[in-house]
Simulated assay, not measured.
Amino acid sequence: METYPLLIVVVTALATARVTRLITEDRILDAPRNAVLRALPDGHLLAYLLTCPWCVSIYTGTLAAVGGAGVGWWAWAWVPALALAFSYVTGWLASREGED
């Protein structure tokens, strides 16, 4: 793999992590996230999903992988592996937030 495509994969993985954090934790989306959480019954699976970076990252990672294939950054055959890799990188980074 050339340097430029590798850079695209790395940046896409980091973008996946950022979008996931935006959805699950960032204050800027507190209002819509809290509105959805209030509308759901206690213990609803969607409430867990909206606050779990490992859960959200599989969706954001898949969208990133499909988008990259759609614009020709990588072959469609790479989409499943890249989606899982983007999700894992996101979860790994989220688990290390706040560590010194």
Score class of each variant (00 low, 15 high):
M1Q: 00
E2R: 06
E2M: 08
P5T: 06
P5V: 06
P5E: 06
L6C: 11
V9S: 01
V10M: 09
V10N: 02
V11S: 03
V11W: 13
V11Y: 09
A13W: 09
A15M: 09
A15H: 02
A17P: 01
R18F: 14
R18G: 04
V19Y: 09
T20N: 07
T20I: 11
L22A: 06
T24H: 05
D26Q: 11
R27Y: 15
I28V: 12
L29E: 05
L29F: 10
L29Q: 00
D30C: 02
D30P: 00
A31T: 12
A31P: 03
P32R: 04
R33I: 15
N34C: 05
N34R: 10
A35F: 10
V36A: 11
V36D: 02
V36E: 06
L37M: 11
A39P: 07
L40M: 13
L40Y: 11
P41L: 09
P41Y: 14
P41H: 12
D42H: 05
D42K: 05
H44I: 07
H44C: 10
A47P: 05
A47Q: 07
Y48V: 15
L49I: 15
L49P: 00
L49E: 14
C52P: 01
P53V: 13
W54C: 07
V56Q: 02
V56D: 03
S57F: 09
I58E: 12
Y59V: 15
Y59W: 14
T60K: 05
G61Y: 13
G61M: 14
L63F: 15
L63H: 04
A64V: 06
A65N: 03
V66A: 13
G67V: 11
A69M: 05
A69I: 04
G70F: 10
V71R: 01
G72A: 09
W74V: 02
A75N: 05
W76G: 00
W76N: 02
W78N: 10
W78K: 06
V79R: 07
P80F: 05
A81N: 01
A81C: 03
A81S: 03
L82T: 09
L82W: 09
A83Q: 11
L84N: 07
F86N: 01
S87G: 10
S87K: 03
S87Y: 08
Y88S: 03
V89E: 06
V89A: 06
T90I: 13
G91C: 05
W92C: 00
W92A: 00
L93S: 01
A94I: 02
S95E: 15
R96N: 10
E97T: 14
E97R: 13
E97A: 11
G98W: 12
E99H: 13
D100V: 14
